[in-house]
Design a protein around this nucleic acid. Sequence first.
DNA 1: GTCCCGTTTC
DNA 2: GAAACGGGAC
Length: 311
Amino acid sequence: MTDQSAATDRPGAVPADPSAVQDALVEWYEADHRSYPWRETTDPYEILVSEVMSQQTQLDRVVDAWEDFLDRWPSAAVLAEADRADVVGFWTSHSLGYNNRAKYLHEAAGQIVQDYGGEWPRDPDGLSDLMGVGPYTANAVASFAFNNGDAVVDTNVKRVLYRAFDVPDDDSAFETAASVLMPEGRSRVWNNAIMELGGVACEKTPDCDGAQCPWREWCSAYETGDFTAPDVPTQPEFEGSRRQMRGRVISALKEYDELHLDDLGPRVRVDYAPDGEYGREWLRGLLDDLASDGLVDVEESDGETVARLQR
DNA sequence: GTCCCGTTTC
DNA sequence: GAAACGGGAC
């Protein structure tokens, strides 16, 4: 007997016949949900942009950036022609963080044009070949653009399954449970609905009654009052971190186009001193990492080191 | 200070 | 399997 079949013997496990649970969630979602502009489109490019942006940022902060981005680069073909520097500059000036992802999006647009002749793959497996598209994003784009995805498993979904059905904190268990729950052929509405549930009713601090969670009658956590959620790793401090310094380099190079080391340094650290602990050597190391990430170009001219955003 | 969070790279 | 990757909201 497998663990999974043992789990179905306990109250709170994923129901063998999930149709009641499915109907309740879909009805709840369709009756009322947060409105986001990317929920009004099925264009895979527009969906991909929204997914890449919202992997890293609260949804309310993504709306303006998404609209501005699509105004400026309305299609994969247009984005593919853009300068990398402009895409990365846009990213940082909209406070989206993770500049590598601007690069991935730019590269993915290039792949669509070069490798796919402008024809988007329509399934998660094909979409996974795009740069920056992992399992979550592949299923999200396949679902929201083509209604052709598998069940998404993000931290919202994990939290919901862990609480409602006592799914153990284990990736393959989440995968199986999410897949069993999803109604066949309805990935678009289902994946929207289950993530909405995690986003408004089953957050870290749950709001079961306030959000009128449709799963209260089946939910293990609602029954027991134990709203423990899977652990999320605590992140190292950002203030003073290398990540913060990288962000400052990108911002400064967006503003000034091209800077010598000693002009850039003070914009990255107020205590920059060419020969100090945080001096040329340190800055050069930071720039070399950014260069190998494909974000920055470092050039020697007349014995001076100059940095700019990579085109 | 704490929370948010998926993908790439090694 | 772990580390690196951002910056704003609260």
